[in-house]
Amino acid sequence: MKIYTKTGDDGKTSLYGGTRVKKNDLRIDAYGTVDELNSYLGLIRDQIDEEGLINDLIRIQSRLFTMGAMLATPKEKEKKKDGTDRLKIKKIEEEQIDFLEKRIDQMNEVLEPMTHFILPGGHTVVSFCHIARCVCRRAERKTVELADNEIINDYILVYLNRLSDYLFVLARKLTKDYKVKEMPWKGQ
């Protein structure tokens, strides 16, 4: 399979189902931001050695690929002409959101209650978590904007919202694991 196809040289790309759109289309921006987020999760995964967290991040990265495929498929192209699903993958559903919530709750059990906003930083991997959280929020904003104009799966927005919470709590957990002091924001 060749990497370059030359079909995008005119500034357009194809969505699943064949629809051609400009590369700055909101749908492309939404799933492109999800792809950027996925890359940051890979960077975080490469910095840690806790097998459970690594497996969780791999699972989340896989869900983000699913989400990208879902966002790249317009509602009217979800079914092929023969009535079968175009995407033959497990979609983002409540089960994946429940997974994130359980992991958030498990991490929170070992953390001190938050009393202040926390300044990002303290350790490289913690900073990467905060960057990923910000990219996740941007992906969420882009997807909300897309949802204002087109029909998308409702679970995508919920998943992105919960994932940003997960990344925040993960940053706090890694701060504790690496014995770094959280820096509270004091508004000065």
Rank of each mutant, 00 (worst) to 15 (best):
I3Q: 13
Y4R: 10
T5V: 04
T5D: 10
K6G: 05
D9K: 11
D10M: 15
D10A: 09
G11N: 07
K12I: 14
Y16L: 15
G18E: 14
G18C: 06
K23R: 08
N24W: 14
N24Q: 09
L26I: 15
L26E: 09
R27M: 08
D29N: 14
A30I: 10
Y31N: 15
G32E: 09
T33I: 05
T33Y: 07
V34W: 07
V34T: 15
V34D: 08
Y40N: 02
L41S: 03
L43D: 02
D46H: 10
D46T: 11
Q47T: 06
I48R: 00
E50D: 15
E50H: 15
E50S: 10
E50N: 14
E51T: 03
L53M: 12
I54W: 03
I54S: 00
N55R: 15
D56C: 06
D56A: 12
L57Y: 06
I60F: 12
Q61H: 08
S62R: 09
S62I: 10
R63W: 08
L64Y: 03
T66H: 06
A69S: 15
A72I: 04
T73L: 10
K75M: 05
E76Y: 09
K77F: 11
K77P: 09
K77W: 03
E78G: 10
E78K: 12
K81Y: 12
T84G: 00
D85W: 11
L87F: 07
L87H: 08
L87A: 08
K88H: 14
I89L: 12
K91N: 08
E93H: 13
E94I: 15
E94H: 13
E94P: 10
I97C: 09
D98H: 11
D98P: 03
L100H: 05
D105P: 14
Q106K: 12
Q106G: 02
Q106F: 10
L111Q: 00
P113Y: 10
M114E: 15
H116W: 02
F117V: 00
I118H: 04
L119P: 05
L119E: 03
G122Y: 00
G122I: 02
V125Y: 02
V126Y: 01
S127A: 00
S127M: 01
F128H: 04
F128L: 09
C129W: 01
H130W: 05
I131H: 01
V135R: 01
C136N: 01
C136I: 05
C136D: 02
R137C: 04
R137L: 03
A139N: 12
A139I: 12
A139P: 08
R141P: 04
K142Q: 06
K142E: 14
L146S: 11
D148N: 13
N149E: 08
E150M: 05
I151T: 13
I152P: 07
I152K: 12
N153I: 04
N153D: 14
N153H: 13
D154S: 08
Y155D: 07
Y155L: 05
Y155H: 10
Y155F: 13
I156V: 08
L157Q: 11
V158R: 13
V158W: 03
V158I: 11
V158P: 03
N161H: 08
R162P: 04
D165C: 09
Y166T: 02
Y166Q: 02
L170G: 01
L170H: 03
L170Q: 02
A171R: 01
R172Y: 04
R172W: 04
L174I: 06
T175K: 01
V180C: 07
V180Q: 04
E182I: 04
M183F: 04
M183V: 12
W185Y: 15
K186P: 06
G187S: 05
G187K: 11
G187R: 06
